[in-house]
Nucleic acid binder design. Structure first.
Lengths: 231, 231
DNA sequence: ACCTGAACACCGTTCAAGT
DNA sequence: ACCTGAACACCGTTCAAGT
């Protein structure tokens, strides 16, 4: 599985100004050459998928990566910093997913808003390990790293811009866009958490999911008032 | 602080068929007479409030309650069972809060639905310790105790009944009530989690909360479509 | 019946020591 | 520079032993 963590920071450290690698990585001894950080993030994700986010231990992550349990402390000040790195990667992947879904409707702001939400939920359900770390306990947004703050702010900005674009075209009402963004976020976040935590179950669950997501997003557009009409 | 846990199971064990206490509890030695279970739940809540749900340890809960770290295992098979007892108490308190808010509008089903949601959010924000345990990691709804399943089902039923009552009076549209209940639940759950986790912040936060809750619930009634009109 | 104290197999984190 | 191994202060859980 290729994730963002395979492509970030440490690879850049091995490239000089002219783009020529300084010390080519031997695959048999790769962790001594700078990609241990990325490997630790991938191992953490593997543990989360197998046993849940709260079961992650530095010692097991280190063992899976083939280093001693003290080695991760060369790359992360503590366990929380490792989890924050997972969360940052998650926000970047989520924004990419939302933008990809929105790109299918370059000229229809209402569809772009809808698929901003669809993309959000799809990411959460496709990457529950990332999502749990992004919004689970142990993430204190007040003292998060700047990198994490930037990535999470970008995801909110994507939603906010989709709403104001709709207002500019008059396809949604002219209320406070911040309040509307909060309603959208609460809806997709709540739904994602309920599904991930197993509180929403139906028979033929996976085949029913697209219709559930559609109904959810539409209910926010049409509302519950009785004069509802189809598009 | 008086909580439900002070009133349940073990007190009943000390009362015989005719309602006469068999062994009056000495206050100086109370834990040897049946209320250790309730005391442990209250201690767990205190730890959650002080240090967060993931910081709860059996050893600290036991120490706060004045017993050895092995004593809790007389009343709970493991740590998870203690947390499940906290969650069950939470669902009971939440249903009580929702019903109390709804009772102010005995003849207005739309207001009852609205204040079902308001009561839900109020409970979550007033009892974040309970709420985190109810919906946090480590609660596997598939293998929860029957008591916990009953209490959580009762809270969902309260919402579902509020919706069908509105449909019977024609004050909301006639869509699938289960899908509508899911939209409501996702909205209030997502909002509660975002506020509890500190992802929603404004200056003058507490004074702004009632308006935010109102806007959130109203947005689900009116929807985002541009022909919105005030009530 | 209910609780204690020691024990076991784990944690996160630190740090002197190796290469 | 980067990693190791031992050490420390913690966990959850078990169990023989006490009252």
């Amino acid at each position: 599985m290729l994730t963002l963590s395979t492509l970030t920071a440490n690879d850049v450290d091995n490239v000089n100004i002219k783009g020529v690698p300084i010390s080519p990585v031997k695959k048999t001894d790769a962790y001594h050459h700078g990609n241990l950080r990325a490997a630790l993030i991938d191992s953490a994700l593997a543990v989360i998928i197998e046993k849940g986010a709260e079961a992650v231990t530095i010692r097991e992550v280190a063992a899976r990566t083939g280093v001693s349990h003290a080695a991760p402390y060369r790359h992360f000040p503590d366990k929380n910093a490792l989890m924050a790195a997972v969360a940052k990667e998650g926000f970047d992947l989520m924004v990419a997913r939302m933008r990809r879904r929105m790109a299918a409707f370059p000229d229809d702001p209402l569809q772009r808003l809808k698929f901003c939400g669809i993309g959000y939920i799809e990411f959460a359900l496709d990457h529950p390990a990332h999502y749990r770390v992004m919004f689970g306990p142990g993430q204190d947004p007040l003292r998060a790293s700047e990198a994490l703050k930037l990535s999470s702010a970008a995801s909110f900005q994507t939603l906010f811009d989709a709403i104001t674009a709709c207002q500019a075209k008059g396809v949604v009402h002219g209320g406070d866009p911040m309040a509307m963004a909060l309603s959208c976020w609460a809806m997709v976040h709540g739904f994602s958490m309920l599904v991930i935590d197993g509180l929403v179950q139906t028979r033929a669950f996976h085949s029913a999911l697209p219709a559930m997501m559609d109904g959810l997003v539409d209910s926010l557009y049409f509302g519950f008032r009785p004069d509802r009409e189809p598009l």
